[in-house]
Amino acid sequence: MRKNILITGASSGLGRGMAREFAKLGCNLALCARRTERLDELKAELTAAHPGIHIALRALDVDDYDAVFCTFREFRDELGTLDRVIVNAGMGKGQPIGTGYFYANRQTAQTNFVSALAQCEAAVEILREQNAGHLVTISSISAMRGMPRNLTTYAATKAGLAALTEGIRADLMRTPIKVTTIFPGYIRSEINEKVKKTPFMIDTETGCRALARAIEREPATACVPGWPWTPLAFLMRHLPLSVVSKMA
């Protein structure tokens, strides 16, 4: 079992839920996010429920690239090793292209791809030094195809992250380091809390339990939950775009 796990974006949503699941498994946690008061609350909750684990906290804005490298190294020094790094921090804002919201789409592109690149760089530096560990990136089922309206930029960033992760996997496949891309389906979180009547949406706790189970298996890729998203992902990649666009 991977004992020391770093999760970015751990103050809310999927990051917070995954922290709870890995705490149940007895893992030590390195948790970072911008909202430190929420991290403090989470640490108090998890320490009370699982007194045998060590929980390290850091404030981190992943758009501050120097801070990403510094924070990851500090976590490694505090815990001794980083056995798994989960690149989870991201945002879901976006607007249709050409409607005057470049600033919002640019911010999403920066955080979801360039900042994820910084996290991958920082993580893999450490994993290479250790010659061991597991890198996990949280992409999205929307990465399977170009998506319309508010999802256009978000889906593109998640597709870019998936391709980046696959390239890292190719580079490290003859080493002991494992690399996994997770494609979550519709799991309720703060990113999508305003989206109503979405088919196949599951609650945060159920979704994060499925995420933790998938990550523990350490596959190259996984759609989560497997049903219905594994067959739907296949269909999304092969159906006409006119059909896929109606799924957004």
Rank of each mutant, 00 (worst) to 15 (best):
M1C: 11
N4I: 02
L6T: 01
I7A: 05
G17R: 02
G17P: 03
R20G: 10
R20F: 01
F22R: 01
F22H: 02
K24T: 05
G26V: 08
G26P: 00
N28R: 06
T36Q: 13
E37N: 07
L39P: 06
D40K: 11
E41W: 00
E41L: 12
L42M: 11
K43S: 08
E45V: 07
L46P: 00
A49R: 10
H50N: 09
P51R: 10
A56F: 08
L57A: 07
R58V: 07
A59P: 13
D61C: 00
D63M: 09
D64E: 13
D66G: 11
F69A: 10
F69K: 10
F69H: 15
T71D: 06
F72E: 04
R73F: 08
R73M: 03
R73S: 14
F75H: 02
R76C: 09
E78I: 10
L79V: 00
T81N: 09
T81P: 04
L82F: 13
L82Y: 01
D83P: 12
D83F: 07
D83L: 11
D83A: 03
D83G: 09
R84V: 15
V85H: 05
V87A: 05
A89M: 08
K93Q: 14
G94P: 02
Q95F: 10
P96T: 04
P96V: 08
P96E: 13
I97P: 07
I97C: 04
G98Q: 02
A104T: 13
N105F: 03
N105S: 10
R106P: 01
Q107W: 05
Q107G: 12
T108R: 01
S115P: 04
A116Y: 00
Q119K: 04
E121C: 13
A122F: 07
A122E: 06
V124P: 05
L127P: 00
L127E: 02
L127Y: 05
R128E: 14
Q130G: 10
V136T: 01
I138P: 01
S139I: 12
S140G: 08
I141Q: 08
I141A: 10
M147W: 03
N150C: 10
T152K: 01
A155D: 12
T157N: 02
K158G: 02
A162E: 12
A163P: 00
A163M: 12
L164E: 11
L164C: 05
E166W: 05
G167E: 12
G167T: 07
I168H: 01
A170Q: 15
D171N: 09
M173E: 14
R174W: 15
R174F: 15
T175R: 03
K178V: 14
V179C: 04
T180N: 12
T180L: 08
F183R: 00
P184V: 07
G185A: 03
R188H: 12
S189C: 08
V195K: 06
P199N: 07
P199V: 07
F200L: 14
M201I: 15
M201N: 03
I202L: 11
D203R: 05
T204C: 14
T204K: 08
E205V: 14
G207D: 09
R209W: 06
A210Q: 08
L211A: 04
A212Y: 03
R213C: 12
A214P: 02
A214S: 13
E218Y: 04
E218G: 06
P219C: 09
A220I: 15
A222Y: 04
V224P: 02
G226L: 11
P228S: 06
W229K: 07
T230A: 14
T230R: 11
R237V: 07
S245C: 12
K246M: 13
M247A: 14
